[in-house]
């Protein structure tokens, strides 16, 4: 789970009760994260490599960005049945999955090569690296530090 560390005190837990509730949410999220299967992770990793090559796009020069997004896609694939984009806020994830607009590769990516997750970057992008490959170990390393 992403740390809430900040140089200022957390304003969102002013009393013990909400913190407790939040811990419950975090535990659930953590459990969901732990439930992300290696199978889905491998599927999304392979998909990402193939799609980068086919679309002539490149992974981020900072590979941890790539790793985290792939992890997010795998989580959504496990939980929702489809790799919903992890870099958006949804009111109803199940409805979004059914509609398909933001299932990876999302419509903006398919139509205009716009990936705001920075998973697939066109060569001219400032953040684009040279790679179209990433290993399962890289993904696990980058996503285990939460």
């Amino acid at each position: 789970m992403m740390s809430m560390a900040s140089t200022t005190a957390s304003p969102f837990c002013p009393s013990p009760m909400p913190r407790g509730r939040k811990c419950t949410v975090r535990v659930q999220a953590g459990a969901a994260g732990a439930d992300a299967s290696d199978k889905s992770l491998e599927i999304m990793r392979k998909f990402s490599e193939q799609y980068a090559r086919r679309s002539n796009t490149f992974f981020c020069s900072e590979k941890s960005v790539t790793a985290v997004v792939i992890k997010g896609l795998a989580d959504h694939k496990d939980q929702l049945g489809a790799p919903l984009c992890p870099c958006r806020h949804y009111d109803d994830k199940a409805a979004e999955v059914a509609q398909g607009f933001w299932n990876c590769p999302c419509v903006p990516m398919r139509e205009r090569k716009e990936c705001h997750c920075m998973l697939f970057l066109t060569p001219d992008n400032d953040f684009a690296g040279q790679d179209q490959a990433i290993t399962l170990e890289e993904i696990k390393d980058a996503t285990s530090k939460i």
């Binding site: 941890s64 985290v68 992890p86 870099c87 997750c117």
Partner: peptide, 9 residues
């Protein structure tokens, strides 16, 4: 969000 890569940056 937890698994948003660019959020780390």
């Amino acid at each position: 969000a937890s698994w948003c890569g660019p959020c780390r940056m």
